[in-house]
Every structure is written in structure tokens, then in C-alpha cells.
Computed example of a mutant assay.
Amino acid sequence: MRRTLPSLMALQCFDAAVRHLSFTRAAEELALTQSAVSRQIRALEDFIGRPLFERVKQRLVLTSAGEGYAAAIRDVLDRAEAATLQLMAHGGQGGVLRLAVLPTFGSRWLIPRLGDFARRHPEVELELVTQVRPFDFDKEAVDAAIHFGPALWPGATCHRLMGETIVPVCAPALLPGGALPDARALADFTLLQHTTRPQAWSEWLHAAGVAGVDGMKGPRFEQIYMVIQAAIAGLGVAVLPTFLVDEELADGRLAVAVDAPLHSQHAYYLVHPATKSDLAPVRAFRDWLLAQVGA
């Protein structure tokens, strides 16, 4: 079935005109005449059936329809350009892998291991961005993501990487007598909260059989790294994955407050759209990462 699409030249002219709010400057950028750009914009408006620009006191401004269309077209053109440049640079072999990672997992676990991936796959260029919550792959220029939670991501394939064990930790100065003898003593401490895991304390307290302690109360931090730093600073007790604070526990910056580890019901996953399963960069990174975790 034939797609309902205007010409690429019309979209390029529209995008340039949006950025400059001038047909003349758009024409200069595209090496066209001003009248050619004007004709392309008029043809695009005729195709869509509504105006995209209007003149207000001799100034070119977008209509409300034009504003929404401009954002969508900019994204389409950016993706098309990126795909074209990638194919030109790599000829379909390797290429760029844009990976969304959890910030603390990325900095503490993944990045120290990436040297091995680079040596094994010099044809793949990694581009890491941070995301702390699930997102829509159709709306983000991302090829894959590392996600913590259940193995649920609509329209995507999830590969389990590892589970985690969480334990309450804090600055040693808060524990002059050593680890607390009983988890109920946490009622006297500030509980540090991680905003993207709001149930972490409640789940740990329930597993420990502790009642009467509000697991939702306490200062909140968006990233695990911030929670770790708050715990080191003595702001309270945090329940954290042991593998992310091994270094702090070993060098004494943190201490276990209650020796009652809990195996999380969730896990870390490599997630990617099912449609990208056979892309060379995704396949190379997936196979390498699964080998790293022994999956």
C-alpha cells in the first residue's frame, strides 16, 4: 500500500523554514531560491490541507498545526539522517549502538567492563544515555536499554542479566555499637528513599517481619548514586544493592546496619525492540553482555 507522505524536499524546506522562521534563510541553507522554498511549503500545505505558517506583522510564525507537525518532522529527519550516516560509515557492518542505561549501574558495573567489548567489537560505536524509567522505544532514538524491574516492556524483547540482593547500609558513625541488633531499631533512623524504587524499604521491612516502621517516609533521591552519597554523608540508612556498594563496604565508608539481606523479586534486563533483534550492533552487544553475566 502506498504511503501517504509528502515529498522529502518539501519536508526539508519546512524544517529549515521552521528553524530560521524565514523562507529566505531556509533557501540559503538548502542552496535553493526563495521562490522554490515558498513553492515547496505551499505544496506541503496543499497536501496536508491546512496552513503551517502565517504572517503576523511581517513576521513568519508557525500556526498551532505547524508547531506540532514541526516537532514530529524534525524527529523523522534526524532519524533518517542518523541511519543514512551510519550506513555510509559502516556499510551495514557494526555501526552505532545507542544504549539507555541506569546511571549507577552504568557507571559502577557496565562502564568498567566496556574495554573488553571495545576490544572484541571495534566495529561497534557505543553511545550511552541515561534513563531511570521505562520509555517508548518508538519515541526515543535508542536501540536498547538496561532496565531493572519485571520482564515486562511492551513491544520489546527482554534478556535477563542478573538479580540483586539488597541490604540496609549507613555511615559507620551512625552505628557506634556496630550493626543494629534488631531491624525494629530502624524506627529511630531516617530512611533514605530512591524515587524510582518507592517500595524498596517497604518490601525489605515486610520480609524482615518489621511492623510499625513507615517504609515510605524519608528524603527522596532520583538516582541510586545519590542515595549512596547520602548514606555516606550520614543522612540516614539506605537499602541498597550489595553489588553497587561493595567498594564502600570494603573501605569502611559504609557499614551494614542490619545483617538481613533480601533477594529482590525483580532483576536487570537488556531490553530492545523485537524489530532490532537482528541488527549487528544489538546482536554483538547482547551476546557479549550475556556472556559477561554468565547467562
Rank of each mutant, 00 (worst) to 15 (best):
Arg2Thr: 11
Pro6Trp: 01
Met9Thr: 15
Cys13Gly: 14
Asp15Pro: 04
Ala17Gln: 08
Val18Gln: 03
Val18Lys: 05
Gln40Ser: 12
Gln40Glu: 14
Leu52Pro: 04
Phe53Val: 02
Phe53Gln: 00
Ala65Gly: 03
Gly68His: 14
Ala72Ser: 10
Ala80Tyr: 09
Glu81Leu: 15
Gly91Asp: 04
Gln93Val: 08
Gly94Ser: 01
Thr104Glu: 13
Thr104Met: 13
Leu110Arg: 06
Leu110His: 07
Ile111His: 10
Pro112Met: 08
Gly115Met: 00
Ala118Gln: 12
Arg120Ser: 09
Glu123Phe: 05
Glu123Leu: 05
Glu125Lys: 15
Glu125Phe: 13
Thr130Met: 14
Pro134Lys: 01
Asp136Ala: 08
Asp138Leu: 10
Lys139Thr: 12
Glu140Cys: 11
Asp143Ile: 04
Ala144Glu: 03
Ala145Glu: 06
Ala151Phe: 01
Ala151Val: 00
Leu152Gln: 10
Leu152Arg: 14
Trp153Met: 00
Pro154Glu: 07
Ala156Cys: 02
His159Trp: 11
Leu161Ser: 03
Leu161Gln: 00
Glu164Trp: 13
Val169Thr: 15
Val169Tyr: 14
Leu174Cys: 04
Leu175Tyr: 09
Gly178Val: 10
Gly178Pro: 08
Ala183Tyr: 00
Asp188Thr: 11
Thr190Val: 15
His194Gln: 02
Thr195Tyr: 05
Trp204Met: 09
His206Pro: 08
Ala207Asp: 09
Ala208Gln: 02
Gly215Gln: 02
Lys217Ser: 15
Lys217Pro: 04
Pro219Ile: 06
Gln223Trp: 11
Ile224Glu: 07
Tyr225Val: 14
Val227Ser: 02
Ala231Asn: 06
Val237Met: 11
Leu240Met: 05
Leu244Met: 07
Val245Thr: 06
Asp246Gly: 11
Leu249Thr: 13
Ala250Val: 05
Arg253Pro: 02
Asp259His: 15
Leu262Tyr: 11
Tyr269Asn: 06
Val271His: 02
Pro273Arg: 07
Ser277Glu: 12
Asp278Ser: 10
Asp278Ala: 13
Arg283Tyr: 05
Gln292Met: 02
Gln292Val: 07
